[in-house]
Design a protein around this nucleic acid. Structure first.
Lengths: 397, 397
DNA sequence: TAATTTTTTTCATGGCTTGACATAACCTGG
DNA sequence: CCAGGTTATGTCAAGCCATGAAAAAAATTA
């Protein structure tokens, strides 16, 4: 693939940046430390070029030498190179249903800091002020390990548009400029702030070495959302409001939905819909209560989960027919309840997805749990530096 | 956008290729002839570099000089440069419901040759042999105008996978290796052959200067398909089987569909569904008959069109909620019937699309008519040469 | 016809990768 | 324990490409 889309003229320095990026991508993708010579063979560049580029990457704290590693063979031992664990880092913030989360991830994708705090207040200014404090603590914790936070990404439960939260029903927010407010609170950190949908970011979090190139991440909770990964990239639609799976129509004459439509998936498969108005036992979250009830064989709960699974299957089948994806990850509360959902979802998919005959479909629970969105948000740093390592190097931090 | 994804090392020659591509893209995008100096200003490259690149583009018949154009001002008049109309061309082939079409498009996107022939036989070998003959005629016609056909793209009514037509119900095809058969018949032409879904290619055909960056193209006919354009690029999913709009579920308990599922859009809005088993008047195609009947006020037809429009609206709303697109083009038979469909579709969209409150949705008929797929298929040459003009230049044709 | 203006081409300069060569560091065998 | 072999990494002149300045070309204007 030689696809290059740039509207800037290519000068000599661009060549250098291109190759630096190429080498860095190889270091990122490598599972074990690689030597300069291996990089030369893998990239097709010559050793001298690799030497020069690696020097630059080390100076910029993107890569470190792990020391000479004699491997028993004759000759000078290879000098291992890995992604630096004390260079730039990403900060992820998440507004969950139960509280706030902050997370720091380094370039290797390792979670280096993770904090959670229950809500004190769900009004936008208070939440963002609280997030600002958590962000500062996280950045300090990161700094103590030699990391420099360069990106801060906020996950919110609703569609966003250039930092503005259009609507977040679970919070009662509407047209809140979370991006600007957050940037205000993080002014002293000098980071690039961004706001995105929780499902998008959780999907990003689930994208790693072991996940396929294309998958659909479904986030279950009070609201249902989805993140679509195509070709290892997040699909975000024209404005970034994509993935509104919760408002796909399952039955055009179904129950009215809060959104003004009828028969949205939401009305069958959100936690509220599955709970069906039943009161929660003390100290249990909705998903935990449902799991307990279902495991105990409570018929109403099992029936509700079955209805939810069928509706989910219908909606997901639509996505799969449209986008030709063959892996589905059930995340959020759906991950916890997956043993009660997967069979029902799979049954609908087998019937409704046209390509299921040729390409088997995999449905499995997501792995990151409730921190998925915060982790995925923090991983923005990897995308950013991977896309343009030169930007970081030029910043000289 | 500086996104560069290349796994090849960047040598000096790549710099040259990158800039050549940049300049060529500017010439392609320009509405009127541009001078070398204008190109220098627009691209940010220097005049000497432009001169050298233009020389190469002219030698490779990608660009031509339109002659000095004195504009009344003092000074040496600018030498106009435009996309060459006698360089590489694309061949598009389409298997329509009523017959076969062949089309040649030059780099400016102008249709230079268009031919149609009714079916003599719908068996795969016969069809591809016939297409081979039409392709040869088209290539000869192109050669007579100085054009060289470099790509041949076949549009088929069904999902394809690496040249193989998985299923084309309207033709009764199943797992037909159309790509290999076509390549066989076109061996003497030395072209790059490709096979894709009719809806995808028609969407590509509708993508031009006046269409927005993101839109959904819906193709109505015996089958219903869709092409999704995001960021001026065709979205094709993981294997390229995306866009199966016809099999999106509109009502999970609806009528059984040929595909084995229930309540597919197909069962409400395909031409067969709208016709409802009524016999066609002699000499009229199904869509023309429906239009005549509807315009004459025939209540059954109007009711069927109304049902179809509602179902279409539900399915399209799903796509829009998922992908955040705000323009819908009704193509194929739906273009002809659009005056009877748009209102119904729009009503459903207004109710069901979450972002409709913030971003108005446009639904309008497609403009290219029945030749859309053949034209879009022929336009593959533009994508190919635009992506990598150096490949063509290196071929030395 | 000469001066002016704008476009296009020519030429020396500097950056980047390359290929050949030099150096460093480890293993094997006498 | 040391010489020779082997592998990894660093150094240097050469070639390619874009740049900036200056020259040449082609029109208008006086």
């Amino acid at each position: 693939m030689n696809a290059v889309r740039s509207n800037d003229p290519a000068r000599q320095e661009r060549l250098r940046a291109l190759n630096l990026e190429l080498v860095f991508r190889h270091v990122l993708a490598a599972e074990a430390p690689v030597s300069r010579t291996e990089l030369a063979a893998a990239t097709g560049l010559t050793r001298p070029t690799i030497t020069r580029i690696v020097e630059e990457l080390i100076a910029g704290r993107l890569v470190t030498e792990t020391g000479a590693t004699p491997d028993g063979r004759a000759g000078r031992p290879r000098m291992g190179l890995t992604v630096c664990r004390s260079g730039p880092a990403g900060l992820g913030l998440d507004i969950r249903t139960d509280g706030l989360a902050a997370c720091v991830v380094d370039l290797s994708g390792t979670v280096r800091h993770l904090a959670f705090a229950p809500f004190t207040d769900t009004e936008a200014p208070a939440v963002l002020e609280h997030l600002g404090r958590m962000a500062t603590e996280a950045a300090d914790a990161a700094a103590a390990e030699g990391l420099t936070v360069v990106t801060a990404t906020l996950a919110v439960p609703g569609p966003t548009d250039d930092g503005i939260v259009r609507t977040a029903p679970s919070l009662g927010w509407r047209d809140v400029n979370a991006g600007a407010l957050l940037a205000e609170h993080l002014r002293h950190l000098d980071v690039h702030t961004d706001v995105d949908n929780e499902a998008n970011l959780a999907a990003r979090g689930e994208l790693h070495r072991d996940t396929p190139d294309h998958f659909l991440y479904v986030s279950g909770g009070l609201d249902i959302g989805a993140g679509i990964i195509l070709d290892r990239r997040l699909m975000r639609g024209s404005h970034g409001w994509g993935g509104e799976l919760g408002h796909l129509t399952v039955d055009p004459d179904g129950k009215p939905c809060r959104c003004g439509s009828r028969g949205c998936l939401q009305t069958y498969a959100s936690l509220a819909a599955i709970l069906h108005g039943e009161t929660l036992p003390d100290g249990l979250t909705a998903d935990a209560a449902l799991l307990t009830w279902a495991d105990a064989g409570r018929p109403e709960t099992i029936a509700a989960l079955d209805t939810a699974a069928t509706a989910l299957g219908v909606a997901i089948a639509n996505v799969l027919n449209l986008l030709d994806i063959d892996t589905v990850l059930l995340g959020g509360s759906f991950a916890l309840l997956s043993s009660w959902l997967i069979a029902g979802v799979e049954a609908e998919l087998a019937q409704r997805v046209l390509s299921a005959r040729w390409a088997p479909i995999t449905v499995r629970p997501a792995t990151l749990g409730p921190d998925a969105a915060a982790i995925g948000a923090a991983m923005a740093v990897i995308d950013r530096i991977r896309r343009d390592p030169t930007e970081w190097l030029a910043s000289g931090r």
